[in-house]
């Protein structure tokens, strides 16, 4: 115990949280960072789930919806606290710690802001080890925990409590998020510390803080390994009208076509649906979810969001290996290609 995330730690944590973060709009990251810096005070305590008393109520806090929407429609500032308080009221119990859903950019910082505002410790770990589009796509779900009851706080003072079967949370959540402007802060996956210790990907907060130190290699943010698929220049970005399937995923799919800059000069095609779900090189599958596929700009080393991809940009295609639990049958069913409507 006794490790603190202070202003200096926040700098390293946020730098580390961006190394493989996709879907993170620059402006929402900037505001999450400025917001966190203004509330972190003397520091937020970082604890391992196993260090908490086993009965401690832990609450997962996350941004849900669109980072573009958050960057445009700013938070009032009380959303994380309101969401957690609402969940506490529903459960009739005070939360003793805050945990993250995932640790990509603003999703790493919102739980920290919540912990600072509530005066609670932040748990060292998260529920994905990477990012998936759906609130249900977590190791918490794989471990048998439910995202519901879930409390949602919107930027205009809205407060919504969802109570439903574990596999219907996203379905109910999405229209609500859209109706409050495209983003909200969720407090969900209420569970005892003993359960959290069993189902989280452990140690990822401190891992990213180390990876965010100046001079640390990018691979330090990928505990299960990372490989560079190729370096290529984006030739075209194509929208599509969907795979034709009945898919419960927000937003439309798109394809990004690249020509490899060196070597075999292969034609590389990335199929994206909020996140990149599949990479093909000359027609052969070279990477898929649940591993995380991301484009890193060769010009500035920043991850290029799917909705910022444009012709002419040169990128390294990097594949971050997902935590082992994602490669089990159950993990693949929840976060593998089939979950994104792709049958291989």
């Amino acid at each position: 115990m006794g490790r603190l995330i202070d202003r200096d730690g926040l700098g390293r944590f946020s730098a580390g949280s961006r190394l493989f973060a996709t879907g993170a709009a620059q402006s929402s990251y900037n505001l999450a960072y400025d917001w966190a810096a203004s509330v972190v005070g003397p520091g937020v305590e970082l604890v391992a789930a196993g260090e908490l008393a086993p009965d401690t109520l832990c609450v997962v806090v996350s941004l849900v919806g669109s980072t573009t929407a958050l960057g445009e429609q700013l938070p009032a500032g009380d959303e994380p606290e309101r969401a957690v308080r609402a969940l506490e009221r529903r459960l009739g119990e005070r939360a003793g710690a805050v945990a993250a859903l995932n640790l990509a950019a603003e999703n790493a910082l919102i739980p920290l802001i919540a912990a600072a505002g509530l005066g609670l410790p932040l748990v060292d770990g998260d529920g994905t080890g990477r990012v998936f589009p759906l609130v249900e796509q977590t190791t918490y779900t794989l471990g048998g925990m439910s995202a519901a009851p879930l409390a949602l706080a919107g930027g205009l003072g809205e407060l919504v409590l969802l109570e439903t079967a574990a596999d219907r949370v996203e379905e109910l959540l999405r229209p609500v998020v859209l109706s409050v402007g495209g983003w909200a802060v969720a407090a969900c996956y209420p569970m005892a510390a003993r359960d959290l210790a069993r189902v989280l990907v452990p140690g990822t907060v401190s891992l990213l803080m180390r990876a965010g130190e100046p001079g640390a290699p990018r691979s330090a943010a990928a505990p299960y390994g990372v490989r560079t698929l190729c370096r290529g220049r984006i030739q075209a970005v194509e929208g599509s009208t969907g795979h034709g399937g009945e898919l419960a995923l927000p937003s439309l799919p798109s394809s990004i076509v690249l020509r490899e800059s060196e070597g075999l000069r292969r034609l590389v095609r990335l199929e994206a649906h909020n996140e990149i779900v599949l990479a093909l090189a000359d027609g052969a599958v070279v990477a898929t979810v649940p591993d995380q596929i991301c484009m890193v700009s060769t010009a500035d080393g920043m991850v290029v969001d799917v909705d910022k991809a444009e012709p002419g940009l040169e990128v390294d295609i990097m594949v971050v290996r997902a935590a082992p639990v994602w490669h089990t049958d159950q993990g693949l069913a929840l976060g593998g290609p089939r979950a994104f409507g792709i049958t291989l």
Binding site: G65, S66, T68, A69, G239, S251, N274, V306, A309, P311
Partner: peptide
């Protein structure tokens, strides 16, 4: 000279960023 159209992630179908 150039048009770029990208669907916006995590928003309803039909919202695009156009440059």
């Amino acid at each position: 000279d150039e048009i770029t159209v990208n669907p916006l992630s995590y928003l309803p179908d039909g919202l695009y960023r156009v440059r």
